[in-house]
Computed example of a mutant assay.
Amino acid sequence: MNTDKETPENRRERLRLEELKRNPIGNLNDAFNRASSGSFMDMGWKSTGLLILVLIVGFIIVSIFFK
């Protein structure tokens, strides 16, 4: 394959595949580290909505029991 006429998308994909061949555990390690130090930005909108819903319901339950 001639790299001069290669599109940027094809080049990125080729480099990604070469990296996976050289270091197959690297992707797993990156995903684990991202999950352990994630933030709300890494969560999807469904997960964020569920978290807010659980907090609201928890607040309501606590306020009923300690009234």
Rank of each mutant, 00 (worst) to 15 (best):
residue 1 M to A: 09
residue 1 M to T: 03
residue 2 N to Y: 04
residue 2 N to Q: 05
residue 3 T to P: 07
residue 3 T to K: 15
residue 3 T to G: 02
residue 4 D to F: 06
residue 4 D to L: 10
residue 5 K to D: 09
residue 6 E to N: 03
residue 6 E to D: 06
residue 6 E to C: 10
residue 7 T to V: 03
residue 9 E to Q: 12
residue 9 E to D: 11
residue 13 E to H: 10
residue 13 E to L: 06
residue 14 R to L: 07
residue 15 L to C: 01
residue 15 L to E: 04
residue 17 L to K: 15
residue 18 E to K: 14
residue 19 E to K: 14
residue 20 L to D: 00
residue 20 L to Y: 11
residue 22 R to L: 08
residue 24 P to S: 06
residue 24 P to L: 05
residue 25 I to K: 15
residue 26 G to W: 06
residue 26 G to V: 02
residue 31 A to L: 12
residue 31 A to R: 15
residue 33 N to I: 13
residue 37 S to H: 14
residue 37 S to Q: 09
residue 39 S to V: 06
residue 40 F to L: 09
residue 41 M to A: 07
residue 41 M to H: 08
residue 42 D to M: 10
residue 42 D to C: 05
residue 42 D to I: 04
residue 42 D to K: 15
residue 43 M to I: 00
residue 45 W to P: 05
residue 46 K to E: 14
residue 46 K to C: 14
residue 47 S to E: 09
residue 47 S to V: 01
residue 47 S to G: 09
residue 49 G to L: 13
residue 49 G to M: 09
residue 49 G to I: 01
residue 52 I to A: 15
residue 54 V to Y: 08
residue 54 V to H: 11
residue 57 V to C: 13
residue 57 V to M: 15
residue 58 G to R: 08
residue 58 G to Q: 00
residue 61 I to M: 12
residue 62 V to Y: 14
residue 64 I to G: 03
residue 65 F to E: 02
residue 67 K to L: 09
